[in-house]
Design a binder for these strands. Structure first.
Lengths: 312, 312
DNA sequence: ATAATATTTGCATCATATGCAAAGATGAGG
DNA sequence: CCTCATCTTTGCATATGATGCAAATATTAT
């Protein structure tokens, strides 16, 4: 129930030697100081100061209280300073959460640069493929690819999430490259799906929207498996550009129906950084999200360069 | 500027797991808790808690702040408790100030009993014959004989301060005992005085007030010297009853003109305990003054007993 | 899907802190 | 010895901040 104010005024009065001087230093009326200290004395139930018009002197209780309380006030200021210190620049532990595949390819490689720029930050990177509650896992920021759900979080767009058709040069040499979406039905299409039943690829391109029923001799719920199969020349895959972009650039994979992309669903399927909608966004989170935005840029390095663009 | 209240509500919320629960435990509305914590966050400039409708979770800054601040709150409570402990019973150091002669004869002998009754008190007894400022010397209570000056102090009367005429049986056997005040002029009177010039003894007795000019072959500014000279049979002395009372009782001195006493001056010349006029009188001072009042009683043991009264 | 509970915000109310002025008190200096 | 300057304290009016209630929004459990 003690007002911290009263304690501060008490110690200030002891230091200054009088209520008036303490008030002068703190910009308060002497009467205010006097009353606060008197209230503190009532609160602890003991006389803390003997008052004369000319001098204040501590009672035994006052001396005892002053010694302990002035140290405590210093500790309290230190605690506030420590927190403020934590916020005045990117510092401390930063818990980053993200999906495994994207994290390994595009988050982890970025961390050395980030940590070089902000040496006081320590990163704890947690890659999980099941959706987790940020707060539950203790994460400060999460990278999400695709659907967004948590409405209590702020989402900052990092990059588009485009899915492109691709296959290995070897497969295309043998099976030929389709020139119209409908031709996909005749190809061995590598299916990523989490459910049973038929799979349709909705493609948008020069000829408008085309829905093609596709199939082949591989269905899997793991994108990496599709990726590996495509690299191995098994067939045509529909994979996100962040996963195959650089292989397309290097020629290990070739884009199929280059004008066509998977049509985005109802939700924004971009790549986002998510963080809590707190009034005080911590400096480290702000720095990290800014860093990713800057690194991926308006056109991420894994996307097709319009003209031979150097990749980092 | 931090309100202690806000910090307490913050830690209570962390402990309770929610603002509502903390408010329930503390008898406050959830909104109040919420606002106080938000204000604390603004004050330190950092988010301390992530809020969900179902759960609160500490940020890194919050965890840091909580760990430090909860320990600090405990220390603060301890400090208040230590002071309160000091006041709930007579405890701690008690600085007693008094005049040498009275202190040696009637204060110091009382201390064993006092300390036996209040074992947690430690006494520091300072005996000085020049008048000192209580607060200056750091005394909690002073015993004063005679004049009172300090109006900022509370004076509690302990005993009357009577001065009586006395001489040794040997002197009276040789010089005879006066039977009227005027006869003192013919006796060797032992003069205590701090000034030069003639000395008059103002005596009140059966015959009303009598002023007698006295003199002899010893003048001194030290009461103890007068006392010693009287014991040695040099002459008649006018000495306080607390100094000679017990010797009169034992017969080592005999009272002269028993019906007469030195007329008191304008000021109250009793024996008093003086202590600061604080709103919170400390338990140890109260106990000590009460103890002296009780020990000396309405008629101190050094006064003539009306009828053979046992002396402690 | 519904109910229950959590946080937050607006608004009215209430407690507390503050400043000013005046009174009482004390020490320094003439 | 007296006067002046300064300090503490108290009363009163004002302002600042805290509180509770109700409503809005959001989230989890049934």
């Amino acid at each position: 129930m003690n007002s911290l104010n009263a304690i501060r005024l008490f110690t200030a009065s002891v230091d200054a030697g009088s209520f008036s001087e303490a008030g002068r230093q703190l910009g308060l009326a002497p009467s205010s100081v006097s009353r606060q200290v008197a209230g503190l004395e009532d609160s602890v139930g003991a006389q803390l100061l003997h008052r004369t018009t000319r001098k204040l002197s501590l009672t035994e209780a006052g001396r005892l209280y002053f010694e302990r309380v002035s140290r405590i006030l210093a500790e309290l200021d230190e605690a506030s300073a420590a927190v403020s210190h934590l916020e005045e620049a990117p510092r401390g532990a930063l818990h980053v959460n993200g999906p495994t595949a994207f994290g390994v390819r595009h988050v982890a490689p970025a961390l050395p640069d980030f940590l070089a720029r902000y040496p006081e930050v320590r990163i704890e990177l947690t890659l999980t493929d099941n959706f987790v509650d940020l707060l539950e896992v203790g994460a400060d920021v999460a990278v999400r690819v695709g659907e967004l759900e948590d409405s209590s979080l702020i989402a900052r767009r990092l990059a588009p999430n485009r899915r492109v058709l691709c296959a290995s040069p070897g497969y295309l040499a043998g099976a030929g490259a389709p020139e119209r979406p409908e031709e996909l039905a005749a190809h061995n299409c590598l299916i990523y799906t989490r459910h049973h039943g038929n799979v349709h690829w909705n493609l948008g391109g020069p000829g408008g929207l085309a829905e093609v029923r596709v199939g082949g001799n591989l269905r899997t719920n793991n994108t990496e498996a599709v990726h590996a199969a495509a690299l191995g020349g098994l067939g045509i895959a529909l994979l996100p550009s962040w996963l195959v972009g650089q292989e397309v650039q290097s020629g290990r994979l070739m884009e199929v129906l280059p004008g066509y992309r998977a049509a985005p669903g109802a939700l924004d399927t971009g790549i986002h950084a998510l963080y809590p909608a707190d009034r005080h966004l911590s400096a480290k989170v702000r720095a990290f999200v800014d860093f990713l935005v800057e690194r991926y840029g308006p056109r991420p390095y894994w996307e097709d360069p319009p003209r031979g663009r150097p990749r980092p």
